[in-house]
């Protein structure tokens, strides 16, 4: 596409899309440098701008889950990250990552009508949000709504999508970019993990074709994510994951087209994704 049109278009999209709550100043207007304290995350408008710009058109990882749900892919509860693992996520880094993971798992359950476990996963996700001080997002989505719509797939999906977005926005709008990034990475990896592991042994058909298209699209998304991750390479905790993501990226970039995704490709992708996911959920 023509880069000259793209940039301002994206910029406009960003301005249009980012609707901060009334009492929040748009990040661009912040000029004060008084906050230059020894903080891990200095308010860097460039970073933020880049983040928003770059990630603006990456859809929520829930989208692929939706597709997965609509297909006849086999549901495997064992794929989701067990809620008991929550106690192992003691640092904010791990919490951020796994918040994304659990949110995606929640979507996965909802998409497959597994309403029995929804409450548990919701609680876990909520807890993690609490420990990340991101409950404002949840405040806007009353817990009762989950309960009330428990048996209605579409409504639940909608709710999950809503709070995922809310939390993400909240974090971004409150200078919590790092956490937002963690969330994004965790969510994206989990979505790929679930997808890739579900298509194993699936018959060739419309469904598989659609899923393969979705997988191919990730090539673009992953590229963008990796570019954002470059800014975090100094982070010791994050570094191992980033390395893995980079390796994964090279795998994805090597895929020419959705049709060319064959079993071997799937196998290698699955292996790599599983490895990254393992590091995240460990």
């Amino acid at each position: 596409m023509n880069a000259r049109i793209l940039a301002p278009a994206l910029l406009l999209t960003v301005i249009a899309c980012s609707n901060p709550p009334a009492n929040q100043e748009p990040a661009a207007a912040t000029t004060e440098t008084a906050k230059d304290t020894a903080a891990v995350e200095a308010i860097d408008e460039t970073k933020e701008f880049k983040f928003s710009m770059v990630l603006a058109d990456i859809p929520s990882p829930l989208e692929i889950i939706n597709v997965l749900g609509k297909s006849h892919a086999r549901f495997d509860k064992g794929l989701t990250n067990g809620t008991a693992n929550e106690s192992r996520y003691t640092t904010s880094f791990k919490r951020g990552l796994n918040f994304g993971v659990y949110a995606i798992d929640l979507g996965y359950l909802a998409a497959n009508d597994q309403f029995g476990n929804i409450q548990t996963y919701y609680n876990t996700t909520k807890n993690l949000a609490g420990s990340l001080d991101a409950t404002e997002g949840f405040n806007k989505v009353a817990a009762s709504r989950i309960k009330n719509y428990a048996e209605n797939k579409d409504s639940v999906m909608k709710v999950v999508d809503e709070f995922y977005t809310q939390v993400d926005q909240y974090l971004r709008n409150n200078q919590r970019l790092q956490t937002a990034t963690h969330m994004l990475v965790g969510g994206w990896v989990e979505s790929q993990y679930l997808t890739l592991n579900s298509v194993k042994g699936m018959e060739n058909g419309e469904d598989l074709k659609k899923i393969k298209e979705q997988i191919f699209m990730q090539k673009l998304h992953l590229g963008k994510i990796v570019s954002v991750l470059k800014d975090y390479e100094k982070d010791k905790e994050f570094m191992p994951i980033i390395t893995e993501m980079n390796a994964l990226n090279s795998l994805y970039q090597a895929i020419p087209s959705s049709a060319s995704i064959d079993d071997a490709t799937l196998a290698s992708l699955t292996e790599k994704v599983t490895a990254v996911r393992g590091k995240i959920t460990n």
Partner: peptide, 20 residues
């Protein structure tokens, strides 16, 4: 108030980092 909020944010980050 924005300044204070920023201070709060900094304190929060420091605290989280210490805890991590």
């Amino acid at each position: 108030l924005e300044a204070v909020k920023g201070q709060g944010g900094d304190e929060y980050n420091q605290a989280i980092e210490a805890r991590d």
